[in-house]
């Protein structure tokens, strides 16, 4: 009986805190760069979905691959059609956790270092990742930033023979999100 009360209260408490501590954005930015010997690739996506729960540290990203804009339309088409196969795998996601959430005071304005661990899914392939970033807390918003490297090979994104060596095997990804409190 005692246990039941405990469990119930845990359940109740967690749902309450869930509702209160969510931050969200639907127009975050993710860019990627790769500086291969011949082909410099750059693309920007400014419709990134992201949400953060400052209580549990849960953080998620949902990125529509078709929303990446390239300078050359043909390159964008190749990216969608042949590299990430956007018809088959429309979204990339990250389901993760801010591991040092207990050390971060999201009430305090200023920059906080964060470590994020979770499952990154690109091109239908999920890998465990652990990356560093910062959360800059200001009045009514949390500004998240991170830069990290992704190996194309890890996500089974193949480079065709003809351009092999022209495209870098690692892509630098820059994340820039401005999260606002979530209102139902």
């Amino acid at each position: 009986m005692k246990n039941l009360i405990l469990v119930t209260s845990v359940v109740l408490l967690s749902t309450i805190s869930l509702a209160a501590q969510q931050y969200i954005t639907k127009n975050g930015r993710i860019s990627f760069y790769s500086d291969g010997p011949l082909e410099k690739i750059e693309a920007h996506n400014s419709q990134v979905n992201s949400a953060l729960n400052t209580e549990t540290g849960a953080i998620v990203f949902k990125v529509l691959m078709k929303s990446f804009i390239f300078e050359k339309a043909l390159m964008q088409e190749h990216f969608n059609e042949n590299y990430v196969e956007s018809d088959k795998y429309p979204n990339s996601t990250l389901k993760g956790k801010v591991t040092n959430v207990n050390e971060i005071d999201f009430e305090k304005e200023g920059a906080h270092e964060a470590t994020i661990e979770g499952d990154l899914t690109i091109h239908g392939i999920t890998k465990k990742v652990k990356e560093k970033g910062t959360f800059t807390v200001s009045k009514n918003s949390i500004h998240g930033k991170s830069t990290f490297l992704v190996k194309l090979d890890d996500y089974d994104i193949s480079i065709p023979g003809a351009v092999n060596g022209k495209i870098a095997e690692e892509i630098e990804i820059t994340v820039d999100i401005k999260l606002k409190p979530y209102k139902n």
Binding site: L6, V7, V10, L18, N49, A51, N53, V60, K62, K95
Partner: peptide, 25 residues
């Protein structure tokens, strides 16, 4: 047992909350 249940629950909460968070989009 209690600790185990609590642990399990907290795990599932994390999972559920991340799925729910995806639904917000």
């Amino acid at each position: 047992t209690t600790i185990l249940i609590l642990l399990l629950l907290s795990f599932s909460f994390n999972l559920i909350s991340q799925e729910d968070m995806m639904d917000m989009f």
